[in-house]
Simulated scan of single mutants.
Amino acid sequence: MSIPLIGRPLGRHRRLTSAEVAALHRQKDAATIAAIRYATEATELQQQLDEAGITISGLLEDLRVEREEGSRLKAALANATSVSVGCGVRDIWPGEEPTHPHGLDVTTLRARFNGNTSPSHVPGL
């Protein structure tokens, strides 16, 4: 009884032809060129991203300054247009009719209730 030879190659290994080797070299060169091109493009894109970040940072600072200025102007406008007279006194514009000649004089009501604001004087309460 004989033991079969395991792992014995059945065919011969052939060498690559010079044309196949040249084709592989061309593929390697093309891949190297593509890698260099992609690396260059990635560097350019990184520079653009850095510049955009700087621009955005500057715009955010401008926005913060403008908001502060807007808040300051809003406060100045509120102070300039604030009402500084009592609620019973107001200016009458030219051509405007005052309200009390039309039967809305409340001085008798004020005298009657003498400043009492409790709900006891309101009917039905």
Rank of each mutant, 00 (worst) to 15 (best):
S57P: 01
R64Q: 14
G58S: 09
E61D: 14
S57T: 12
R72Q: 13
E61W: 07
N116S: 03
K28M: 15
H25E: 15
E41L: 12
V85K: 04
N114R: 05
L16R: 11
G86V: 00
A42M: 06
N79A: 15
E97A: 15
S2W: 05
A31I: 09
T108K: 10
A78E: 12
I56M: 09
N116I: 01
L77H: 07
F113S: 01
N114G: 04
T117A: 10
P4S: 10
E41I: 05
K28W: 14
A34Y: 03
P98I: 01
R12Q: 13
S118R: 05
P9M: 03
V83P: 00
G124E: 04
R12C: 04
L60R: 15
C87K: 13
F113D: 01
D91R: 03
V106S: 12
G86P: 00
S118E: 06
T32D: 14
P101C: 04
V65F: 08
N114P: 00
G11C: 15
L49T: 13
L49G: 09
G53L: 07
A111L: 06
E61Q: 14
S82V: 09
K74S: 14
R14L: 14
T32H: 13
E96I: 02
N116E: 03
E69G: 04
D91C: 06
R12F: 08
A35L: 08
T32L: 14
S57M: 07
P94S: 06
S118C: 05
E96C: 03
L45H: 10
E20M: 06
N79F: 08
R15I: 06
E44A: 13
A35W: 04
A52E: 11
M1K: 11
I92A: 04
R8P: 01
E61N: 14
V65R: 11
G86T: 02
V122K: 03
N116M: 02
G53M: 10
V83M: 04
D62H: 07
T108C: 08
A76E: 14
T117M: 10
G95Y: 01
R90G: 02
G11E: 15
G58E: 06
G95W: 01
N79E: 15
P119M: 06
T43Y: 12
P123E: 06
D50T: 12
V21M: 10
T108N: 14
A76C: 03
L5N: 11
T108P: 02
L109V: 03
G95T: 02
E69V: 11
G103V: 00
E69P: 01
E51N: 13
P123V: 04
S2C: 10
A76W: 03
P98V: 00
V21D: 05
L59V: 05
L16W: 07
L73E: 08
G53Q: 13
V21T: 12
P123K: 03
H121R: 09
L45V: 08
H100E: 15
R15M: 08
E96F: 01
A75V: 07
I56Y: 10
L77P: 00
V89K: 04
A22T: 11
A31H: 07
Q48W: 09
N79W: 06
Q27N: 11
L16E: 14
T81W: 02
A75D: 04
T40L: 11
T108I: 09
A34G: 02
I56P: 00
G88F: 07
L59Y: 06
R26H: 09
S84N: 15
P98F: 01
G95E: 00
V21C: 05
